[in-house]
Simulated scan of single mutants.
Amino acid sequence: MSQAIIFDMDGTLFQTEKILAISLEDTFNYLSSLNQWDKETPIEKYREIMGVPLPEVWEALLPEHSIEVRKQADSYFLQRLIENIRDGKGELYPNVREVLRYIKENNYSIYIASNGLTEYLNAIVRYYHLDQWVAETFSIEQIDTLNKSDLVRTILEKYEHSHGAVVGDRLSDINAAKDNGLASIGCRFDFAKDDELLQADQVVHDLIELKAVFPIEKSIQSELSLL
């Protein structure tokens, strides 16, 4: 049975930074037009919390606003993100296609597990044709707990995997790997934090390094399965 290699999306496969600032600026300009915002766009605050589920994002960015206003912001932000993806303003990280192709050719099963919303994730997958390598993309929307560990567990149970790795840039990805008995591969990219990456089994600075990592991980996991 093949092993599961589960990738995060934002800050791991997709350079969210390319469309983040403009989409967030559009959203807060929209709130301003509704007389719901009169300050600068809190882009730095968003970068600090990047990777958490969107409901938590709006709680942090709009702590004094109503749930209704947060929902308006969430809906408009998602719309702008998707439009910017479709307009080609986003970008994958270097070597994504080469690495996904290599991993699939070496008989690993590839999945995406993200805190992003389904519509947003599907826009990225479709635009960059990632589905030629990725078996299925999972959104945090699909589970009630909004916990990345539970999302990864959903993948393992659905496809009957017991070995593999989670590749991501944040602590939630690392914990999701550990909570499910998988190897954790940290990506030192745009939103990564050094203190979080210290908890990963391995850290890469470029996805191309995964071509060396996964055969080693596969061997280690095979040995562990015999114990």
Rank of each mutant, 00 (worst) to 15 (best):
L92E: 06
K89C: 07
E40L: 14
L61N: 04
M1H: 13
P42H: 06
S33I: 07
R97T: 08
I82A: 06
D87Q: 10
R70D: 08
D10N: 03
L31A: 02
A73Y: 12
V96D: 09
I49P: 00
R86D: 09
Y93E: 15
L31N: 02
H65A: 07
L34W: 00
G88R: 01
I85M: 08
D38G: 05
I85G: 07
G90R: 06
K71Q: 14
F77L: 14
I5V: 15
E91T: 01
P55N: 07
D10C: 01
E56P: 01
F7W: 08
V52A: 08
D10V: 02
N29E: 15
E83T: 13
P63I: 10
L61T: 10
N29S: 14
F77H: 12
E59N: 11
R47V: 05
I49W: 04
L62C: 14
L81M: 14
L24I: 11
D8A: 03
P94M: 10
H65P: 00
I82R: 15
S32T: 15
L92Q: 00
P42Y: 04
R70A: 05
F77D: 10
L31R: 03
D8M: 08
N35T: 07
F28D: 02
Q72A: 12
K89Q: 13
A4W: 00
D38A: 10
G51T: 07
I22N: 13
V69L: 04
F77T: 05
N35D: 15
L20H: 10
D87Y: 03
L20T: 13
S23H: 14
N95I: 08
Y46N: 04
F77P: 05
I43G: 01
H65K: 14
E17I: 15
F14D: 07
P55Y: 02
S2T: 09
M50R: 06
D8E: 03
Y46D: 03
S2N: 13
L54C: 04
E83L: 12
S33A: 15
L92W: 08
I19H: 03
R70Y: 03
D87G: 04
R80F: 06
V57I: 10
A60Q: 11
P53Y: 12
M9H: 00
D8K: 05
E68D: 06
N95G: 04
S32M: 10
K18T: 11
P53H: 10
S2A: 08
L31K: 07
E91C: 03
E83H: 07
I49A: 04
E48Q: 09
M50Q: 08
M1A: 14
L62A: 06
D74E: 14
M1G: 15
G88E: 02
H65D: 11
K39T: 04
Q36E: 10
F14C: 08
Q72T: 05
Y46E: 09
T12V: 09
E68T: 11
E68R: 11
I85N: 06
E59F: 02
R47H: 05
D38M: 02
L54E: 09
R70Q: 10
L61M: 06
E48A: 11
Y46W: 10
L62R: 12
K71I: 05
D74F: 13
N29H: 12
F14P: 01
E56M: 13
L54F: 13
Y30G: 15
E83R: 12
M9S: 02
F7G: 14
W58C: 09
P55W: 05
